[in-house]
Design a protein around this nucleic acid. Structure first.
Length: 274
DNA sequence: GCCCAGGAATGTA
DNA sequence: TACATTCATGGG
């Protein structure tokens, strides 16, 4: 099917550090496993995309995944070049980036894996985890891919988990899977909690601190005010906002602006341009 | 070889 | 509370 009139920059989202399983097949052409499906999507022109799914799958799965019902024009319109020229420059540079609605369990594990690793290494581990532990599937082109492993599948991996290059994070991932399987962690229940209660519950998990909890809330629960602070964001805040960052003024969209700043600052620093 | 990576746990004062 | 150290592994 063809999708028209949407502001969506596939290349920028793929490099935005929120998703690690997008496979680049060509210019503005990606293969995306998600929710028991696998989408081929290609940009055909301004705001125009070709997707290999039917309307029913698009409405049920991919429209929400790409967050097409959130009004990014309104979010972007809430900041002004006069108040914050750097953020506005970041927003312009990152136009077409959206906060994907990804699977919550997958984002918990993925966010744990991200700690103290660079993005290419994260991609490798997440893909290994899927290939070695996830269910084999066939996409609409007849090619095989692997779903992300469920908590039970992850625990059943045994020694294969050690082949995923997780390092010291392996124990964190294993304990998160155990918590879900034993019923100590109710991920869907977390969704209904207020932000602070949700954050506290996540931080209670072994290997989850404030930064990972914020990633889970932003990318896994679409709580757009969650603000992950990694080494890059600390640099942005120190260099560009030495007198303080206006979190209150930017609520409830702090997480969206954070994505803009993260990617824009890294692009200025030349990351990924080798 | 060297330094760094979308950090967090642990130990110490 | 506030730092310092340690952790496993890959990318550049």
């Amino acid at each position: 099917m063809v999708l028209e009139g949407v502001e969506l920059d596939l290349g920028k989202i793929a490099e935005s550090g929120q998703c690690f399983r997008w496979q680049r097949l060509g210019e503005a052409y990606y293969r995306i496993p998600h929710g028991g499906d696998c989408l081929y999507i290609r940009r055909e022109g301004p705001g125009r995309f070709d997707l290999d799914c039917d309307e029913a799958a698009f409405e049920a799965l991919w429209r929400p995944y790409f967050d097409l019902d959130t009004d990014y024009a309104a979010i972007n319109g809430a900041i002004s070049p006069r108040d914050d020229p750097f953020l506005c420059a970041a927003m312009e540079d990152q136009r077409g980036v959206r906060v994907l609605r990804q699977d919550l369990w997958e984002m918990l594990v993925t966010s744990i894996i991200t700690q103290n690793r660079n993005i290419p290494a994260i991609r490798r581990s997440v893909e290994l985890l899927s290939q070695l532990g996830g269910s084999p599937m066939t996409d609409r082109a007849g090619r095989e891919y692997h779903a992300f492993p469920t908590p039970g599948q992850l625990l059943d991996m045994g020694g294969a988990l050690g082949a995923c290059k997780l390092g010291y994070r392996e124990a964190y991932v294993r304990r998160a899977a155990e918590a879900v399987c034993e019923g100590a962690l109710d991920l869907e229940g977390l969704r209904r909690m207020p932000d602070e209660a949700c954050r506290r519950a996540l931080v209670g998990l072994y290997g989850v601190g404030d930064k990972v909890a914020a990633c889970v809330m932003l990318f896994g629960m679409h709580r757009l005010n969650a603000f992950p602070r990694d080494v890059w964001m600390n640099r942005v805040l120190a260099e560009r906002y030495p007198t303080g960052y206006p979190f209150e003024r930017y609520a409830p969209n702090n997480g969206v602006y954070q994505q803009y700043l993260f990617a824009y600052y890294r692009s200025l620093d030349g990351v990924g341009k080798t």
